[in-house]
Amino acid sequence: MKVKEMLSPGNNFEVLEAKDGVEGLNLILKEKLSLIMLDFILPKLSGWEVFQKIQSHPELRKIPLVIMSGRKEEVTEKIPEPFEYFDFLGKPFDKKQLMDAIRSATIKAKQPRPDAVSPTVPTAAKNGVATTPATNDLDAAAEIKLLNEKIAKMQAEIESLKKQLTQVVTFIKQKIK
């Protein structure tokens, strides 16, 4: 409803709605869409399952995709960052964030993709750890680069949290005096 309100007819969008993942997937398969806005948490068929179906069809993968969720960690559990071929929109969001996500998704959808690469889907679980096959050294190198980027991002977040904690402790000490 919120997306439909933000994308009013004045913005040249016609919005088709689906009440659950099954209905949404049927719309995606039947209609000629120019954009897919996919909530990650859906009844009947989850956003993750719909995403997997989209990724299994080369033609559907060309459609700009915005995945929405109030819990980004649920998305990143299944789809590692950086999100190269779609955009992520955290809830709640405003109209500017929505329009920025649509623009970004449109740009990302035009990026060339290796056709042989399937979406990142865990293929085996050993001792509770999901793994994906690395078919060659380039895949392993890309995975290492991705992990290093995640580590750098986490370290920056940790430093930010340390600064905030220091500020809170200082504030509390001042109030106690």
Rank of each mutant, 00 (worst) to 15 (best):
K4G: 05
E5N: 05
E5P: 01
M6H: 08
P9R: 01
P9H: 05
P9C: 01
F13V: 02
V15Q: 01
L16K: 08
E17R: 09
A18C: 02
G21M: 04
V22K: 13
V22R: 10
E23S: 07
E23P: 02
L25S: 03
L25M: 15
N26A: 10
K30T: 09
K30L: 06
E31N: 10
L33G: 06
L38G: 01
F40T: 00
F40C: 00
F40G: 00
L42Y: 07
K44D: 13
L45A: 03
L45R: 11
W48K: 11
V50F: 06
F51E: 04
Q52M: 09
Q55E: 15
P58A: 04
E59I: 09
L60N: 06
P64C: 07
I67T: 02
M68L: 12
S69Q: 04
G70H: 04
G70K: 08
K78H: 12
F83N: 03
Y85M: 05
D87N: 13
F88G: 04
L89S: 01
L89P: 06
P92K: 06
P92Y: 01
K95L: 09
K95W: 05
K96I: 08
Q97L: 09
M99G: 00
M99K: 09
A101D: 01
A101G: 01
A101W: 03
A105V: 10
T106E: 12
K108E: 09
K110P: 04
K110C: 12
Q111K: 15
R113Q: 15
D115F: 15
A116F: 15
P122S: 11
P122G: 14
A124S: 12
K126Q: 12
N127G: 11
N127Q: 12
G128I: 04
G128V: 05
G128D: 08
T131L: 13
P133V: 13
A134G: 10
A134K: 13
A134C: 13
N136Q: 08
A140L: 15
A141E: 08
A141M: 08
I144K: 05
K145H: 10
E149C: 08
K153L: 12
K153R: 15
M154C: 06
M154H: 14
E157V: 02
I158S: 00
I158Y: 12
I158A: 04
E159F: 00
S160H: 14
L161F: 12
L161P: 00
L161I: 13
K162R: 14
K163Q: 14
T166G: 09
Q167V: 05
I176N: 11
